[in-house]
């Protein structure tokens, strides 16, 4: 039996007085690579933040590795949206990656050469070694996203939550990131990715979580990522390109 790494029961969350998420139930097994898919305002980012305790939950229970978040903290990696930080901050790519280790370094200690080496290794893995000492505002969007990924890798977590890591990046970065995600999965790690491009879901993820304020369906991509379920998630406003094709490419009419 595969290990359950994340169990979410009856989770609900709100922004001010508007309920954004309700009745969220699902269980994630180790070694899965899940795409979290849903329309704008479906609560994808909020779901991740609520699971991680960064946004208050109205109700519900989240357990990691059959334990609490507090006890499993070290095994959890988080990649926020790239736009959530100020890239003019006076720091280098290597420094940002080292931040992923700050929790492990502990109070009153400074990052050592060992930590810097680990961070550098992780940058190298993302093809960013040449930019280690570059000020982060001098990096392109794709490069910044790779720095964020490198920072998550250096945490050496067991389960990763990534908020739109593929949004607005170039094709080379998208390939590099997907290669790393598949590598993580192969190493038995669990990865949950907020994703917005329906056309690549089948290629990228073995599990899909269809979300629109609540979980429409969660499971293996082959079973869950069907026209009917997608239509249910997006409220039926779907236009299908290549209707004959079983793996039709859906797009959304706004």
């Amino acid at each position: 039996m595969t290990e359950q790494v994340l169990t979410v029961e009856n989770l609900a969350a709100a922004y001010r007085k508007n309920t954004v998420l309700h009745d969220i139930h699902f269980t994630v097994n180790a070694g899965s690579l899940t795409g979290i898919v849903g329309p704008n305002g479906a609560g994808k980012s909020t779901l991740i933040k609520t699971i991680l305790g960064l946004h208050p939950a109205l109700s519900g229970k989240v357990s990691f590795f059959q334990s609490t978040y507090e006890k499993a903290k070290r095994k959890i990696g988080y990649v926020p949206q790239r736009g959530s930080v100020d890239w003019d901050f006076p720091t280098t790519a290597l420094d940002v990656v080292t931040m992923g280790l700050y929790g492990q370094i502990g109070w009153f200690k400074w990052p050592s050469r060992f930590h810097k080496a680990k961070a550098y290794e992780s940058l190298e893995k993302m093809g960013m070694a040449d930019y280690a000492n570059r000020q982060i505002s001098q990096l392109s969007g794709g490069q910044q996203q790779r720095v964020f990924l490198a920072r998550a890798l250096v945490q050496n977590a067991e389960i990763y939550f990534m908020d739109e890591p593929l949004a607005g990046v170039d094709a080379a970065t998208e390939r590099a990131i997907m290669a790393i995600l598949k590598e993580l999965k192969a190493a038995g790690k669990t990865v949950m990715v907020v994703h917005h491009d329906l056309q690549t879901v089948r290629d990228y993820f073995d599990h899909v979580l269809l979300l629109n304020r609540t979980v429409i369906q969660y499971g293996k991509t082959d079973h869950v990522f069907t026209k009917e379920n997608i239509a249910r998630t997006y409220g039926g406003n779907m236009r299908w390109m290549g209707v004959e094709n079983q793996d039709g490419l859906p797009s959304i009419q706004q």
Partner: peptide, 21 residues
């Protein structure tokens, strides 16, 4: 004493919270 904590909470508070600061 809290140099790295000031840095991480200024740059990326969400990450800081998620690594237990």
């Amino acid at each position: 004493a809290f140099y790295k904590e000031w840095k991480i909470t200024s740059f990326d508070p969400a990450l800081a919270a998620s690594v237990g600061i």
